[in-house]
Design a protein around this nucleic acid. Structure first.
Lengths: 147, 147
DNA sequence: TATTTAATTGCGAATAATTTGCATTTGAAT
DNA sequence: ATTCAAATGCAAATTATTCGCAATTAAATA
């Protein structure tokens, strides 16, 4: 293994993050995180698998890593109303949202400040005392499909 | 078939709604809609099937009807981050939201006014000119699981 | 550096959710 | 009453995801 000085800065960040979660730094894990860092849009397990295929990581391993990274708060699941699940890096400061085309399935990232929504929701809740996460997704027909 | 005067009022509403969508009024369809009207919480295909079982409707029929009712704007898909899809009646005036427990999966309805979110989202979009729907879901740990 | 051990992986099989093909039935228009 | 497309039941197919288990590997420790 490389020593600290030989490592790329971003890898150091990844490592310490993984270590903090009690997860080993494996090639598969690092590759998956890199792919998410390079793609700021939601990806399905199979999307990741296709991007990583040459490096020969098993699809089951992708699923298992998605699970542990989601549990560790690195990834978050995104609902695009498709048949498979999508994920992206969890940005704890700024929430990331999307608009998905109900016709062709294409989607777009949306910047939108939705601060205060969670606390508003909590005010109306009986069974919950804390909200950890939320998802806000939009659906419509894209300009291409509208024509 | 019953004539207009013999029919229950709610059935009349259902019928005209279905007719407008070009869907036949079948026992399965009416039963499914009734179940959604009686349960103001998200239901999966299997949830519906269990509630209807005595009337012997095939699960595939439930799936097919969910699809056509969703397409017709009667139902909307809800993401509770579970393995199966959930649906509820689409209320075009007031959006319905939920908090789901990440530990035990229990969920609660949340009343929350989120008007203006869609238009705000649209302002930041390049590929879309209209938003038809959105979903806003919260996730946390319920009081029971916290203990 | 070698040893040790639990975590991770690959592989194939299993499971769960959903969809499909096709023959039959049925709602509703005529 | 007749007609015909739409809807249904049933079983089989497909898709997405998970699991069991033996082999491998990361990383802590001697």
């Amino acid at each position: 293994m490389l020593n600290f000085c030989q490592m790329k800065k971003e890898t150091i960040v990844k490592n310490s993050r993984l270590k903090a979660l009690g997860l080993k730094e494996t090639p598969a894990r690092l590759a998956i995180i890199s792919i998410f860092e390079a793609n700021h849009s939601p990806l399905s397990a199979e999307d990741i698998w296709k991007k990583i295929k040459n490096k020969k990581v098993n699809l089951a391993t992708i699923y298992r890593n998605i699970l542990s990274l989601e549990k560790g708060g690195v990834l978050t699941r995104i609902d695009l109303r498709k048949s498979s699940n999508y994920y992206e890096l969890k940005d704890t400061l700024h929430h990331h949202h999307h608009i998905t085309c109900s016709t062709c399935g294409t989607f777009e990232d949306i910047e939108l400040c939705d601060e205060g929504l969670s606390s508003k929701a909590l005010e109306n809740s009986l069974k919950f005392s804390k909200i950890l996460d939320h998802s806000l997704e939009f659906f419509g027909i894209c300009k291409k499909c509208k024509r």
